[in-house]
Design a protein around this nucleic acid. Sequence first.
DNA 1: TCCTAAACAGACAGGTCTGTCTAGTTGACC
DNA 2: GGTCAACTAGACAGACCTGTCTGTTTAGGA
Lengths: 192, 192
Amino acid sequence: MKTNELPLAVSPSPARRRLIDTATRLFYAGGIHAVGIDRIIAEAGVAKATFYSHFPSKDDLVVAYLEEQDRIGRAAVAALPKQPPRRMLAAILGRISTAAVAGDFRGCPFLNAAAEYTDPASPVRRAIDARRAWYHGVLREQLAADGDKTPEVTAALLVALSDGLLEIAYLDDPRSVPALIEAALTRLLPQR
Amino acid sequence: MKTNELPLAVSPSPARRRLIDTATRLFYAGGIHAVGIDRIIAEAGVAKATFYSHFPSKDDLVVAYLEEQDRIGRAAVAALPKQPPRRMLAAILGRISTAAVAGDFRGCPFLNAAAEYTDPASPVRRAIDARRAWYHGVLREQLAADGDKTPEVTAALLVALSDGLLEIAYLDDPRSVPALIEAALTRLLPQR
DNA sequence: TCCTAAACAGACAGGTCTGTCTAGTTGACC
DNA sequence: GGTCAACTAGACAGACCTGTCTGTTTAGGA
């Protein structure tokens, strides 16, 4: 009764865990096509046969990487303290500021992956779709609770702004992002 | 007196022209790392030695591709009829709608390239920087002419929105973009 | 006619990519 | 002790990558 105490969520083997962690670091920092399997298994300290027993192909590892990022993002939003919709929206968007000022920021992992995967039907693109749909839905819900008369439209604008602010943080000036988020929320949400 | 009549702008050789055109098509549609030199020269009908006499390396072709895209964008904006700032801004942003509804739209070539080039000092990234600085400047000018009290901030918001709407057009629903642009301009520009 | 520049075809080198396979090792549980 | 699953190391195949090089062809101008 000391083992399988927590079989829920299928706690992954250490090798699998190291592979996903290493892939996350290398894919995000270097791009996906630019990072080879050999480098990932070397830095993860995992044999090639072990890698291919966990992931049938490199693309499966890419999907696992994105799903991991997605899981982290959803958990962070779920962990936000319950608060009025406006403050909730500010907190959700505020995560962009946090990421932006952290070192080694290289933009949105999902947008970067989408740039490299051109087939909309590929598993990678579907993982990206799932993330975007979730994010849009979260914003729409908060906007509806806030009494926004067109939550669908406002949510899409906030999705676009989030995408763009991540790009600004990556390519232009990360320090400008917090003020931009504040300005965006002030202007996009109806004044009361 | 029938040759060098127009040495301005250095009219490129036909082979160079075909290389840039083919690279534009293939890089944009397939991603940069995913498209090899062999494929480009084959589809352009150019010998390998000819390619390497025009471009010292593949990255030089990538830069030429982005500079070409930049040139086209700037020409399109320059060709817009002179009109009041608000309408000018709508026309500039409206180019996103046009691109979005065109077939085979795959997002912003500059953002896609940035996802693949991680070194901010690389020539590719500097080409991207130049483009973004130009776009920001154009928007800021129009906003200033419109009497916007914080043209710098509003311009950054419109840059972010442009980036994000291009991603929405690529990854979500292109048909939603025109209405989103209208909504964004209505809400971001001070009411009068 | 000769000369030169540009483009042609295509082999080649040296490296990297994904994915497969063989063979040996470790460690937990019965 | 025996068994089994998961791991390790590393060779290998076959494809593809960038970039170099040799040698040939084409076409225009002096």
